[in-house]
């Protein structure tokens, strides 16, 4: 599969179909991966793909508007491509998608590669990308066993209001507002984020429990029906805040109310971005 990715990248760069291919390269620890920007065909051999390639690279497309770009995209990441296409943040003709078939990514951190599949991969239905120009790898015939419900979400739902408040407070109190969750998220591209606005000051600059709570709550709502579930926010959090639970809960709710999952196609408008008079979801 690596050879297919490299050959395609070389072809795209040599023919000047794109001026950059965004893929994965080896990290400095020698065992994990990192995003790699390839500008010259001869550097394409540095591209890799293995079970450590956890990053959702689609975020970088937002920095390359108006420039022809090739990008390596897994099944999960392809949903973010659809979200960005739907929201007119990227143009289909500017992006050459090298789709990869993915059997799952393992838990990775600096200098450590485990044998354990990431939680999101254990529930994955999307081993091949939904949108691509070229596909690397053989389609997987037999899907890995998946569950419909996310057990950790069900666990939290079973708690009382007070218990849930205590659970989230404990996590949010630790937040240092480094905004790594926002910066890595393809769905977070506001020209000015509400927490960065100083005039008016929507949220105070204090790195403190009340402000942290507002930050995470509003961000989660902004991503309801838009989060494609790549889980990058949780991966990058230095404070190990289980953001997946929040995003997953909201994704479940949106699916229940609107029968909609983010990023399955580029055409269908996301429910919270549209107003349909006839829609009656019992919330007002």
């Amino acid at each position: 599969m690596e050879k297919q990715i490299r050959d395609k990248a070389k072809e795209l760069l040599s023919s000047q179909a794109v001026d950059c291919v965004i893929g994965y390269g080896r990290a400095t620890d020698g065992v994990t991966s990192r995003p790699l920007f390839v500008y010259e065909p001869e550097k394409a051999d540095e591209l890799i793909f293995d079970k450590t390639c956890t990053h959702n690279l689609t975020k970088y497309l937002l920095n390359r508007k108006g420039k022809k770009t090739g990008i390596v995209v897994k099944g999960c990441d392809s949903r973010a491509i659809n979200v960005l296409l739907n929201e007119e943040q990227i143009k289909r003709e500017e992006v050459s998608i090298i789709g990869v078939v993915c059997e799952g990514i393992v838990e990775v951190s600096w200098n450590q590669v485990s044998e354990i599949l990431q939680t999101r991969c254990r529930y994955c239905h999307q081993h091949a990308p939904l949108v691509y120009d070229f596909l690397a790898g053989e389609p997987i015939k037999e899907l890995l066993p998946t569950g419909e419900e996310h057990p950790a979400v069900t666990e939290i739902e079973a708690k009382s209001l007070e218990e849930r408040e205590a659970f989230w407070s404990e996590h949010f109190d630790r937040c240092c507002r480094c905004y790594a969750c926002r910066q890595v998220c393809p769905g977070c591209y506001c020209t000015e984020c509400f927490v960065d606005s100083l005039d008016p000051l929507w949220v105070g600059i204090r790195i403190a429990p009340a402000e942290n709570q507002i930050w995470h709550s509003i961000r989660a709502f902004h991503l309801a029906g838009r989060c494609a579930g790549c889980n990058e926010c949780e991966r990058v959090c230095p404070m190990n805040i289980p953001l997946r639970l929040l995003n997953r809960k909201l994704a479940n709710t949106v699916e229940e109310l609107f029968n909609f999952q983010a990023g399955l196609n580029a055409e269908e408008m996301q429910p919270l971005g549209t107003f349909i008079k006839e829609e009656n979801v019992g919330i007002g």
Binding site: R34, P35, L36, F37, K59, Y60, N63, C176, R177, C178, Y179, A180, R182, Q183, V184, V236, P238
Partner: peptide
């Protein structure tokens, strides 16, 4: 080229 990859979060500065 280095900034291509950087996400521009505050993480490095805060740790």
């Amino acid at each position: 080229r280095l900034a291509d990859r950087c996400l521009h979060c505050n993480l490095c500065a805060y740790v």
